[in-house]
Simulated assay, not measured.
Amino acid sequence: MTAFGPRMLRSLGPWATALMVTLAQPGVADSPDSPPPADAVITADAPATAAVLQPFTVNYRVNVSKIPTPIRATLTLTEAGDDQYRMGLAVKSMLMDNSEQSLFQWRNCQPHTLTYQHDFEGFRRERHHRMTFNWDTLRVSGHSSADDEGQDDFDYSITEDTLDELTMLLKARCIMQEGVSQYQLTSAYGKRLRTHFIHVVGEETMNTPLGRLRTIKFEKRRDQDSKRRTIFWLAPDLDYLLVRARHVEGTGLFGELKMTGYDGPYNALKK
């Protein structure tokens, strides 16, 4: 794994790890007293949008080119008071430590980031970002430190729909209501803005800790013609819960995230 570990695992953070964004939905319909049979596909009659979010914890395992690794990831969402939420992602092993934190407000089906930070250490590489979003002036400022880019303070303009890379997929449940097959998102990360091209490519039914779920398969590229891409599977009947994510670096080389545990509003669906 050391031959390609640094590039692959750094590619998993922040974007591929950001794919682990999972929303809990209030107002979920009452679940059956007993779990569904193994061949049943779970659906939930929940509204597509919500005024508030509910806390959750989701666990994932990281595989590299279908080879299991000891790397585990945990994504959490907690209430922070004053109409604010805090999302945190921790990806840890003996070889690396990747951590992201986003403090944001949820307004009109969009996360409005207040602060974002990303720290990566491993394989003799480091990356640290501290960012503050000012929505009154539509600017983001902060400090970046990376072994391949040095240290720098920054301050630049953003638009009303600019996201951070951890809460980016919170937009999926709103955008998909419009019946689109492709869309673009803009995120602020470190010293620059990033554009993400996202395509809906099909549906699959998967086994998960919550039973069998119908999922929509998305593909994301930073450039329309890029060979590097990220594929992710979201469960629309559970408010676009992330089931799996795969980041492809090249032929036969990819990192994959698989959900292994869940604690949140859908606990009653567990077998």
Rank of each mutant, 00 (worst) to 15 (best):
A24C: 13
R192I: 15
I231D: 14
D148P: 03
Y116Q: 01
M206H: 05
P26D: 02
Q177A: 03
T251M: 06
E219I: 03
A245H: 15
S34H: 14
R107V: 08
D45M: 07
S31V: 14
K227Q: 08
G202H: 02
M259V: 04
P70S: 07
G150N: 00
N63P: 08
P14C: 08
A38D: 14
E249L: 06
T162F: 01
L166T: 00
H118T: 09
Y116F: 04
D225P: 10
A73C: 11
L193K: 13
R7D: 14
A188M: 05
G252M: 08
G264W: 02
V200L: 12
T43C: 05
R125A: 13
L269G: 00
A50M: 05
A73I: 11
V62M: 00
I231R: 15
H143L: 10
E121Y: 11
M96K: 06
L169C: 09
L114N: 07
A48K: 13
P14G: 00
I216C: 01
L213V: 05
E178I: 11
Q54K: 07
L103Y: 03
A235I: 02
T159Y: 10
D97W: 02
T230P: 11
Q54W: 05
L269P: 00
Y156P: 00
R107N: 14
P35S: 10
H143R: 11
Y156E: 01
R229N: 11
F218P: 10
A29V: 05
A90I: 09
L257W: 02
T132L: 09
K217N: 04
D164K: 00
K217L: 03
D136K: 10
R229K: 14
T260Y: 05
S226K: 12
T167E: 09
V243F: 03
D239V: 09
W15P: 10
S99G: 07
D30G: 13
F56V: 15
Y240F: 13
W106A: 00
L193C: 12
P26H: 01
N108H: 08
F254T: 04
T74E: 07
T43R: 10
I175D: 03
S34I: 15
T2P: 14
H112P: 05
D33W: 12
L234T: 15
L170V: 12
S145H: 06
A44S: 15
A50P: 02
R212S: 09
L163A: 07
N63L: 05
A172R: 14
A18V: 11
Y85Q: 00
T162D: 01
P47I: 05
V248E: 12
A51G: 13
Y85P: 00
F232K: 06
H143A: 05
E203K: 04
I158G: 06
M131H: 11
C109Y: 11
T57G: 02
Y262L: 03
P26S: 10
M131G: 02
L257V: 01
K217V: 05
P111A: 09
Q177C: 01
E121V: 06
G150R: 12
F4R: 14
P111S: 07
P14I: 06
Q105T: 10
L169G: 01
L114S: 04
L12D: 04
R244C: 02
D161Y: 00
D164F: 03
A40D: 05
Y240C: 06
M20L: 15
T251R: 09
M1G: 10
M176A: 06
L257Y: 14
S181N: 14
